[in-house]
Nucleic acid binder design. Structure first.
Lengths: 254, 254
DNA sequence: CGATTTCTTGATAGGGATCAAGGTCTGTGG
DNA sequence: CCACAGACCTTGATCCCTATCAAGAAATCG
């Protein structure tokens, strides 16, 4: 099992434009506009919070590089990770002055903050562009929905398997994973908090996955030994990760 | 415990405009435009599917009246309800030619189908309006996220309590619930499929809620006997159901 | 190289699933 | 108007998946 090198840049210079372009075609000037939005990048050390739940939030973030988690901590300390955030993702939406969730950097991250005020400026110039951004943004919803199915109706092994496959597919889409592996500083605790399991049990699940040559967690790397096997175990159908808008909806507009 | 009458219409003539207006101010002409979109309403009998997972889908639906569920059935028959759909909700987005989920009418529903093609026309005329719609639409994400916390980190009683409170709040927002009760054809099976529990166990949870005068399922009606009590049990914080965009983001645009 | 953090293993317990059946209600048709 | 069927609720018994508790390795880090 080799940990082959990735052919994609670790730092995406135009994550937002690239992301949107995955869903909807962008005109050159639109892409350029998106780039200007990301002018002042901010770097977040690993282990630091980008957003704290309950605190005021007047900007959104485009993730340029690095991996983070969006999560929620309950009164009694239980934590639920809502999603793993990867380059190209947009965080901080959902309206409201106060953040509903926290966001933590798992690796060093680079983000481009966009104050709501600036968004308005862009909107004024190119409302159709905003619509495109929002539309691409909305595709994320299916990821959350699938996670719901996970937590509600799948067993622990299925959940872990499904999660590993989902991350493989998502990271492949942005060039951060090869055929069967990807770099990610996952701990079993993180996985347990994402999947609603206990750390102990996640550990036992991994023992099984390992013994069946399905998946391994080595170093800071997820290596999938048997992609079809893991896929089958997870009942994984990647459709939900490749949303498209029929007829290139925006292109037909004059 | 009285089941007071509702002061809101059962059938909302402008669900989409009303919905968007809850989040973002609409100009009169925009509201009018939204109304024209909903011209040809379609009625769905209770128990019928509006959308079937895997089938092609080339339109979106604005729910005008009635309640439905969006759900997903796994290979082996397990079902997970993703969300309860109420008037004003928009269904069918998420892109892709094939529906990822099914949608079933729990009561007779009235929906306004909007072909993607028409959406394009409107977009062409008023791209900013589409942005508003999408933005309001995006607020739904926080509902899904909260459900995730539910399934991942809350006990059975907490889940049921939280769910009942969520529906109370959501239905109040559209005038379909009074202070402490609402009409909804919930079965224990539906609740179990929404919350990832077994029917048997949901039944036992309700026995407890009943005995503590917290909540009742009578007729086709949910009656909450002790709103603060149920709220506390659920650790319910309605913030996530009232998202706002700071500074009336769209209004400042010339 | 001491100190966290993370992983692993073992033992025990419990929340909730599953299985099985009976009861109740509702609508439908004869 | 009654009888029946199907949907829904209830109850009881049992089991098992996964959580908890406890504590020792191993790895990572400053």
């Amino acid at each position: 099992m080799r940990a082959s090198s990735l052919n994609a840049p670790a730092h995406d210079a135009m994550p937002l434009a690239n992301r949107v372009a995955r869903f909807i075609r962008l005109a050159p000037d639109e892409a350029a506009l998106l780039r200007t939005l990301q002018s002042d990048a901010r770097t977040i050390q690993r282990g630091r919070k980008l957003v704290a739940q309950g605190k005021a939030l007047d900007e959104i973030f485009i993730i340029t590089a690095g991996i983070g988690i969006r999560y929620r901590v309950l009164n009694d300390g239980r934590r639920q990770i809502i999603r793993f955030v990867v380059p190209g993702d947009i965080e901080g939406f959902g309206g409201s002055g106060n953040a509903l969730f926290s966001m933590l950097a798992l690796t060093e991250m680079v983000v481009a903050p966009i104050p709501y005020a600036n968004m308005m400026r862009v909107l004024q110039a190119k409302p159709r562009l905003l619509a495109k951004v929002l539309m691409s943004f909305y595709c994320d919803v299916s990821i959350d929905a699938e996670r719901l199915v996970d937590l509600g109706r799948r067993s622990a092994v299925e959940r872990v398997a499904h999660f590993l496959m989902e991350m493989l597919t998502r990271l492949q889409a942005i060039g951060l994973a090869d055929d069967h592996s990807y770099q990610l500083p996952l701990t079993q605790e993180l996985i347990s908090d994402a999947l609603g399991l206990s750390v102990t049990h996640v550990n036992r699940v991994f023992q099984r996955l390992r013994s069946e040559n399905l998946a391994f967690l080595v170093d800071q790397r997820v290596v999938i030994g048997d992609v079809p096997g893991l896929s089958a175990l997870a009942d994984f159908d990647p459709t939900y990760l490749q949303p498209r808008f029929p007829g290139e909806i925006f292109d037909k507009v004059a």
